[in-house]
């Protein structure tokens, strides 16, 4: 099923119980993608060639230390940055620039401070030319999905960090992308809020079956969310190990097997980094 169909289907039956609106994600083929930044002090290699296949509807977490090029990889997949070598295929199409089938979510939420919550969520729909009435209805639906009904008229500065990320998720979901690219979206949140958002994200994902690529430097977060965890080395980044997580969902951070998996992955990550600098963050 192509994404084009997905989009029009949603628009036609915006009120139906297929409320979450999608037939699931698309596959991604990342072939030999690398990135070298040209800087004043010479070229900086951010990402070693990466090969990665992501299945439609899969939840993949990319784990690695800060600055290892994971975010660069997401930007390249989003089409906001060009790869130095290699190519990205989204479903059957080559990625050439940004597209609403792949939406990137940032750590800073990147909500527009000049718009209220309602109009932030409507922003992407407005670009697509969705009529105003429909935009409103869709915005309301996704606001409900992230449990923020009643905040339509609030401005960004009136929301907490967790609420901002919820709005950002609703804003992304409103345009019904096939792929969610999440760049440490919960990195700046307190542990309690983060756990709650994990659960919400997991339930949104399991009802929409979108493809999710989730970047984090938190091992437990990676294990709690991912079908697969890819461990990156420090800059220049490359994938050093891959773990398949077969734990049942919904997962609890207190689950013993989850803690065991995390410990194992942390060892690998520590070897890759060559020191213990992650300990404090994941302890």
């Amino acid at each position: 099923m192509s994404h084009q169909v997905t989009l029009s289907e949603t628009r036609n039956e915006s009120g139906s119980d297929r409320g979450t609106g999608s037939f699931g994600g698309i596959s991604l083929q990342i072939e030999n993608v690398s990135k070298v930044f040209a800087g004043r002090a010479g070229n900086v290699e951010a990402l070693r060639p990466v090969n990665l296949n992501v299945e439609a509807g899969e939840f993949v977490t990319l784990l690695g230390p800060s600055g290892c090029g994971k975010s660069t990889l997401l930007s390249i997949i989003a089409g906001l940055e060009t790869a130095t070598t290699g190519s990205v295929m989204a479903d059957t199409r080559k990625v050439q620039g940004p597209g609403t089938d792949r939406v990137l979510l940032f750590q800073e939420a990147a909500l527009f401070p000049w718009l209220d919550v309602q109009h932030n969520i409507e922003f992407g729909l407005r670009q697509l030319g969705t009529p105003a009435g429909e935009r409103r209805a869709l915005a309301r639906r996704f606001l409900e999905m992230v449990h923020l009904q009643g905040f339509e008229r609030s401005y960004v500065h009136q929301l907490s960090g967790g609420m901002r990320q919820r709005v950002a998720i609703a804003r992304a979901l409103a345009i019904n992308p096939a792929v969610l690219l999440m760049d440490e979206p919960f990195g700046a949140l307190d542990a309690l809020t983060r756990d709650r958002l994990h659960a919400e994200l997991e339930s949104i994902w399991s009802s929409t079956r979108k493809t999710v690529l989730f970047v984090t430097h938190n091992v437990r977060e990676a294990v709690a969310l991912g079908d697969r965890v890819l461990v990156f080395s420090p800059r220049p980044g490359r994938i050093v190990r891959e773990f398949r997580i077969n734990l049942p969902r919904p997962r609890s951070l207190e689950d013993h097997s989850l803690v065991d998996e995390s410990a194992e992955i942390l060892t690998v990550l520590r070897d890759a980094i060559g020191n213990d600098e992650l300990e404090a963050e994941n302890g």
Binding site: T100, F106, A110, Q127, L128
Partner: peptide, 14 residues
Amino acid sequence: NPIYLKAARNMGAR
């Protein structure tokens, strides 16, 4: 903030 431009372009603003 360049992040606003990134987000906007990503959501199809041109």
